[in-house]
Design a protein around this nucleic acid. Structure first.
Lengths: 248, 248
DNA sequence: TTCAATATTATTGTCTACAATTTTTGGTTT
DNA sequence: AAACCAAAAATTGTAGACAATAATATTGAA
């Protein structure tokens, strides 16, 4: 157990700097970030118990701020709390994946349509630059691995931010995307269709640049539907290998 | 399907099932419910400070569980917390209303389409029964007032629960709908188009009964777009009367 | 051995007190 | 007066201890 716990404190990868709040001025904030990272990396395995005395000792804080951090994780749907029993890291199953992707398709379709309506030409430049970076990454093996793991989300992150809808951005980036990360870690991972995904990204940017909101929305919905199908196939395959496994 | 959804399916009026969380076994849960109710009723005015010593005294609990309740309110987007400064009841403005309704239109459109695909004939009976009840209420003055205040949401609760998507249900009913209530209280209220809304509800149920998912989604989106227009007009009108008002 | 009831331990829920920070107050200077 | 700085008050953040509940272990009986 302590080996797992030791890993948790180990700090960030480059991609990590994108998402967490810049200034974690309070201990509770800091521990919230750490725990969230640990969960989405799979270092706290799905279904496992959140032990307050243990974690408060690990992070060197008292249980008060720790419990507040756990409440925030509950808000992100990363843990589930039962009264008088405690919190457990969320369990991911196929049913939940279906639900998440139904929602994601609707929301990112919306975001992409809004982005097409609202993106400035400077915004389009940013999209093009990101595509170029991804294209270069697909060449190298390491880059391809990164693209499959985080690059795809970077693209979606940018689109959503261009939608101009702050609440939508928070909903997707603070909640759904972290859950998607967790799925990626849990399945043997990889969408394993990087070239196809890149092509789809390209067409989406084309539609945005042409201010074609309807097409942009349609293409994004399809793009996500493809990702959904890939994930479900993967989950289906995995579930045949290891049927059920309730965390410690 | 989740216990929550089952619970709601079994109740006469969904609002009753949802507002007071089943059994608030812990003090923090109980205070969370109380605070949420106080906020959506406008008893804690938008923008006002959440004073921890004051509230803990009021509810007769210490600050620990109170702070956890506040964190949960933050998760519902009902308060905004700044580190070392504290929490304030969320301020509602036109921009936020637009964002919320953009999201709501996408999500409830999705929900309604799913409901059309999945509703059993028993579910359709429940929808018809609800419509009949609302039709009766429109006759009386009191009933009309209720219909405008809560009856509309009851209809939407039921539709969303019929979507079968638990996460979608939670997203809408635990977060968005409470915010909508807050808007209704804050504006001089009333959608003031009960007859029109009832007609739209009726057509939506028709589409669901006919298993016409695309039409159901379209009609729901239009229904919400109408509500959005009404709310924005109201907010616009109100903002001319009292320009800006930062809570105490 | 297996099951059930009980005793023990561990964990969660809560309270009180203290430290850190912010907000307010009051005074001083220009 | 107005603006600025310092002291005081209030509020938030955190720690540690105790109470209530759940999980575990132990004992006894069938």
């Amino acid at each position: 157990m302590s080996a797992i716990v030791d890993n948790i404190k180990g700090k960030a990868t480059p991609t990590e700097a994108l998402l967490p709040t810049a200034t974690a001025s309070t201990r509770a904030d800091s521990v919230f970030d750490s725990l969230r990272t640990a969960i989405v990396r799979g270092e706290l395995s799905p279904g496992s118990k959140i032990n307050e005395p243990q974690l408060s000792k690990l992070y060197g804080i008292s249980r008060g701020p720790l419990r507040e951090a756990i409440r925030r994780l509950e808000g992100c749907k990363l843990v589930e709390i039962k009264a008088n029993v405690g919190a457990r890291v969320v369990e991911l199953d196929i049913q939940k994946a279906i639900e998440i992707y139904e929602i994601r398709e609707a929301l990112e379709g919306l975001a992409c349509g809004l982005a097409a309506e609202r993106a400035t030409s400077a915004d389009c430049d940013r999209l093009r630059a990101l595509l170029a970076r991804h294209e270069a990454q697909i060449e190298s093996e390491d880059g391809k691995r990164y693209y499959q793991k985080e690059g795809d989300l970077d693209f979606h992150y940018l689109i959503v931010s261009l939608s101009g809808n702050t609440r939508l951005f928070n909903l997707l980036c603070d909640e759904l995307y972290h859950l998607l990360r967790l799925y990626r870690v849990q399945t043997s991972s990889q969408p394993s269709r990087p070239a196809q995904a890149f092509k789809e990204h390209h067409r989406i940017v084309d539609a945005i640049e042409e201010r074609d909101a309807m097409l942009a929305e349609l293409l994004m919905r399809r793009h996500i539907a493809s990702a959904k199908a890939t994930l479900l196939a993967q989950l289906d395959h995995d579930s045949e290998l290891n049927p059920i496994d309730v965390g410690s």
